[in-house]
């Protein structure tokens, strides 16, 4: 079934929050998945896999730390949402031509919306590159090189993000990104469900209209 981008963003935000990310990072996840889906990528599927893989892991394990110029997780793979937020927050450095080097990261395609946003706010064009895939980003529609499998890879050992003066051959987005399978919907809704409180009689009372006879 086709979903609107607003629905996709709201579901992604809630699911990310349900998985344990802070509200601010969950908002980043919502915006990122929206960008991916608007540009024809399977953003909801990537998020589903990411949240399922990281469920229960503490922030401190996933958070990036810089060792010898390379950002790595303290334990295991980096989370592309947490790392993506860091990329946005360091857009000024990217604008000054300093590359961002990343070690092992899950779902590297999920870094694209953040890199795109950082490029726009720094007023530059950047390439985001990992094994078999390369995206050229300036805040508009992305330029995409690489096959499906490499683009939607579940992990990669290193990613480089750097300024470029290359021209962008923009791809035309399809509606595919807005198509949600029942399985993806079910998984994301299960994560989102964790943010909902069981209703109580006290809360039900007075929330809306009670008399309907006039």
């Amino acid at each position: 079934m086709i979903y609107s981008l607003n629905e996709i963003e709201a579901l992604a935000r809630k699911a990310a929050r349900g998985s344990g990310l802070s509200w601010g990072l969950a908002e980043e996840a919502g915006k990122a998945v929206r960008w991916l889906c608007a540009n024809g990528f399977q953003g909801t599927e990537l998020l589903t896999k990411l949240l399922s893989a990281n469920d229960g892991k503490p922030y401190s394990d996933l958070a990036p730390q810089q060792i010898d110029d390379v950002w790595r997780a303290r334990s295991g793979m980096l989370c592309p949402i947490i790392l993506g937020a860091l990329i946005c927050d360091r857009a000024d450095e990217l604008g000054r031509g300093e590359p961002i080097k990343v070690g092992e990261v899950a779902m590297p395609l999920m870094l694209a919306p953040f890199a795109s946003h950082a490029a726009r706010s720094a007023g530059v064009t950047v390439t985001l590159e990992w094994q078999g895939a390369k995206l050229t980003l300036d805040g508009g529609a992305p330029g995409v090189q690489g096959d499906e499998a490499a683009l939607h890879a579940a992990r990669t050992t290193s990613v480089t993000l750097s300024q470029t003066d290359a021209a962008i051959f923009r791809s035309v987005p399809t509606e595919r990104g807005r198509q949600l399978t029942p399985e993806i919907l079910k998984t994301l809704e299960a994560f989102a469900q964790r943010t909902y409180a069981p209703a109580t009689e006290a809360s039900r009372a007075g929330a809306g209209a009670e008399t309907d006879d006039d």
Partner: peptide, 26 residues
């Protein structure tokens, strides 16, 4: 402020007397 599981709508609860810990909306 929280969202109820019943109808997925925002509601306003009593923090100190209802079991709403962990469900607060920002």
């Amino acid at each position: 402020w929280y969202v109820s599981a019943e109808k997925l709508e925002p509601r306003l609860g009593e923090r100190h007397s209802e079991p709403l810990d962990g469900y607060e909306q920002p």
